[in-house]
Simulated scan of single mutants.
Amino acid sequence: MASPDLVDEWFALTREKMPALAEERGWPVRFDHCFQRILLDNAVGGPWREHIVPPAYRNAPDDLLKRALDTGRAAIEGEADLAALNRRSLEWRGKL
């Protein structure tokens, strides 16, 4: 189960910071649940629901949520390509 501090950080990142930057960065998604899907899928290497019982923010182990947060921070810093991460997520889900 994720620690409360990580959950707070998760929601700040995916509900506030990333959506606020989406248009400016030209990211392919705008909504919190899309950022959450992308970050979690890439943290587990496939559709997150195959690895974590919903709700993910409550049930993800700390190390996994930290990996997802690190990926989100890297996207914000321009060190990770959010469009590529999104494509990978969609491929894993058979949506491309």
Score class of each variant (00 low, 15 high):
Q36G: 08
L96T: 15
Q36D: 05
E16H: 10
P61D: 15
L40M: 13
A74G: 04
D32I: 02
L69N: 01
L39R: 08
R87L: 14
R15P: 00
R58K: 14
R25T: 07
L90W: 05
G78F: 05
Y57A: 15
A56E: 06
F11I: 11
P61W: 06
D62H: 11
L90R: 13
H33C: 02
L6P: 09
V29S: 04
A75R: 05
E24R: 14
E9H: 03
A84Q: 12
R15D: 13
G78K: 06
V7C: 09
A12H: 07
W27G: 08
P4Y: 07
R88L: 08
D32K: 01
G94V: 01
S3Y: 01
W27Q: 09
L82R: 00
R25W: 05
I52H: 07
E24C: 04
D70P: 00
G26M: 14
V44P: 01
E16M: 11
P55L: 10
N86G: 00
R58T: 04
L6F: 13
I52Q: 12
G72L: 05
F35L: 13
D63E: 10
A68R: 02
L82E: 01
L40A: 06
A2D: 08
I76A: 07
R87A: 15
E91Q: 12
S3R: 15
L85N: 03
S3M: 10
M18A: 09
V29F: 03
P19Q: 09
V44N: 04
E91S: 09
A83V: 07
R25C: 12
P54M: 14
L85F: 03
R87D: 14
L82W: 01
F35S: 11
M18K: 00
Y57L: 08
D41R: 12
H33F: 14
L6M: 15
R37S: 12
E9S: 06
I38D: 02
R49Y: 11
G26W: 11
R67I: 02
E91M: 12
L6Y: 10
W92G: 11
R73H: 03
V53L: 14
D63M: 01
D70W: 00
E16F: 07
C34F: 08
A60Y: 04
W92C: 12
S89F: 03
F35E: 11
D63P: 00
K17H: 08
H51S: 12
R37W: 13
G46R: 07
P47H: 04
L13S: 11
W27R: 08
G26A: 13
L90Y: 00
P19V: 10
F31W: 10
L82M: 01
P55H: 03
E91I: 12
W10E: 04
K95I: 09
A43M: 05
S3P: 01
E24D: 12
W10S: 04
A56T: 07
R15M: 12
K17S: 10
A2M: 15
P54E: 15
K95G: 00
L40E: 03
P28F: 07
A75P: 05
R25A: 15
W92V: 13
D62G: 12
L82K: 02
A74R: 11
